[in-house]
Design a protein around this nucleic acid. Sequence first.
DNA 1: ACTTGGCAAATGTGATCACACTGCACTATG
DNA 2: CATAGTGCAGTGTGATCACATTTGCCAAGT
Lengths: 222, 222
Amino acid sequence: MPETMTRMPPNPPDAPVQAAHDRVYRGLRQQIMHGELPPGHALTLRGIGKAFDVSMTPAREAVRRLSAEGALTLSASGRVTTPELSNDRIEELAQIRSLLEPELGSRALRRAHLALIDRMEAINEANARAVNLHDPVNYIRTNLEFHRTLYLRAQSPAILGLLETVWLQLGPTMSALYTRLRRTTPPPYHRHILEALRAGDDAALRLAIRTDVTQGLRHLQG
Amino acid sequence: MPETMTRMPPNPPDAPVQAAHDRVYRGLRQQIMHGELPPGHALTLRGIGKAFDVSMTPAREAVRRLSAEGALTLSASGRVTTPELSNDRIEELAQIRSLLEPELGSRALRRAHLALIDRMEAINEANARAVNLHDPVNYIRTNLEFHRTLYLRAQSPAILGLLETVWLQLGPTMSALYTRLRRTTPPPYHRHILEALRAGDDAALRLAIRTDVTQGLRHLQG
DNA sequence: ACTTGGCAAATGTGATCACACTGCACTATG
DNA sequence: CATAGTGCAGTGTGATCACATTTGCCAAGT
């Protein structure tokens, strides 16, 4: 039984078929979350369809789904753009992160083991490399991966799912801001997170995560 | 220029036209959030289209949007049902509520005034009436309206928006559980919330809201 | 030089259709 | 009587099309 010949993103062999609208959704979602699109970037259904080699229908469904998650903004006339966040909205999203992430960290702490911490350490080093190379996309990607690796251990899919929509909304803005101020030092509180994990100290972990989140985003608003 | 003759939900005169998919979205959303559909209830695109007198296209977009918000579940083959939540997931959603709602209450407290408290008092009385009549839909509706009336004053649209998706996910399950155990007393902590508001006591308000949320949902799981 | 008008291209919306797959009931078989 | 096989109605998916609206540009007038 031969596979399909052309496949733009190579299909994970376990996924059954992956519908077209889902492939488009995943592709756009990653671009947005990793900050590959600047805030206010305009998209068109026909353009998206062309890029993924599908018709407007799956493109529309992917856009509808992403806009429901706050990853895209629809104008009154239906035009599609990445969101341009006001300072108030950035602060709200930071507040949500600072409420949810310490809780996820705490839940993960009880289930954490050494291999997990080692993995986070490796991701953190990749993150530092991205900082040195002034590579915003890889910086954001490894930063999120650092946090997600920890939170996956929390076994709390509903909370993590909600949190990912918050990350999504911040993607374009974070990328633009990081690009603008060209930071040269990696996030300092990642070390505190790792130390608290090793020590099994719940209170210290919650504080380190909250500080990492709020410091990281406060740094950006100036 | 004559309007369309048949219109199931009468169009608010200020809204320009309201696209078909948006009308379908709003209609389904309200049914789900108010608990008019039991958990696991199956829907079909053609059925939705028929109910709202549109084709499958707007029905599909509304479903896609709602499933992105967790208000509907899509099976692997694309079948549409209202979600059947596990106990773990209910607990996660309760945790999210208990994190976000006290924060919203606190933000609203600074801006609260007497007319707001009076309005909440009136809603709370309507809520008590729904309890006496064993009317789950109106119970849920007035309960949510009580909380939303307060949180709207927080001027935090991003947090409130996220919270509403949590309410959405809980709608069918809450309705089923309330129907099953036929509670006879209104939520007792609503009074505490009102008293804390009148006293301007932030700590007491946060505690009352957290207790209202967790007690209300703990009551349901048994 | 700046504003205003209008026209053409581009865009989102919704309907319709063909198709493949699923789920279910009915039937034939052990 | 129970069970596996079969076919049909039902369902979601994706492409295509017509249409109304919007957008952006270019020209004409002040």
